[in-house]
Amino acid sequence: MSGQEVFDHPDVVLCPGGPMLLRGDHVIEGPDGTRHATTRPVSAVCRCDKSAVLPWCDGTHKVLPEKLRPS
């Protein structure tokens, strides 16, 4: 069949005002050298730096003033 849609399905998505979504298995090294392995099909990495469960997002960006939220 031809003409079927090809979907956008990026590996990394920067959510406006929110986290970075990461698809697939990855290991993230934190600023102190600690390594964190992803455990889900999609993981949300904190971009506001205020999460209590860094490097993962915990939704804290939503209670920050607009200017402190990631772009």
């Binding site: 998505v13 986290p19 999609v42 993962w56």
Partner: peptide, 14 residues
């Protein structure tokens, strides 16, 4: 659910 739903809310809405 703190971590899972921080992902899921982005997936669901966007």
């Amino acid at each position: 659910h703190v971590e899972a739903d921080a992902v899921h809310e982005q997936l669901a809405a966007r």
